[in-house]
């Protein structure tokens, strides 16, 4: 009789120990996963914005012959992936805050630069990077008919 009750208590203690061990493991995994998920969601959102920004910049813009006075959508290409100096000059005439609104980037900051294939800077526009989580992507384009790269960087406004 005594032996039986001892084994039942041992059984109970083991079960409680296993339960709490598994419970703590699940809580730890869940909190780690939640933090990681939150970071991933932000990163994916930034990537979406960066892709959108690069696609918009590689379009013609609206109207097709836009200037800093009448622009509705900023596109730097005069045709498929061909960016010109005059388009970038027009972009430089538009204040950063207005550009951000026109590019649909409220709540985000961005930085754009054109670089030669050897890495030399050609032109740049936008804010200094202030955040830790930044997404940068590069597209290959023509600048004044020579191959170059368009780099966009996007981060959440602080």
């Amino acid at each position: 009789m005594n032996k039986k009750s001892q084994s039942t208590i041992m059984d109970l203690l083991t079960a409680v120990f296993v339960f709490f061990a598994v419970f703590i493991l699940i809580i730890v995994l869940f909190s780690t996963y939640s933090a990681r998920l939150e970071k991933d969601i932000l990163r994916e959102e930034l990537k979406d914005k960066a892709f959108m920004l690069s696609d918009i910049l590689l379009s013609n813009g609206i109207p097709a012959d836009w200037n800093s006075e009448n622009v509705q959508l900023i596109g730097l290409a005069i045709y498929d992936k061909h960016i010109t100096e005059s388009r970038f000059d027009e972009l430089n005439e538009i204040p950063y805050e207005n550009t951000r609104e026109l590019l649909g980037l409220s709540g985000f900051d961005f930085y754009i630069r054109l670089i030669e294939t050897n890495g030399n800077l050609i032109r740049e526009y936008g804010d200094e990077v202030t955040a830790k989580e930044v997404v940068a992507l590069r597209r290959i384009i023509f600048y004044e008919n020579s191959p170059a790269q368009l780099e966009v960087r996007v981060w959440r406004k602080e």
Binding site: F51, D80, K81, H82, R139, I140, F142, P147
Partner: peptide, 12 residues
């Protein structure tokens, strides 16, 4: 995207 860009560069 980089692949498509590269083909465009070669095409042009």
């Amino acid at each position: 995207k980089v692949g498509y860009d590269m083909l465009a560069i070669l095409d042009y």
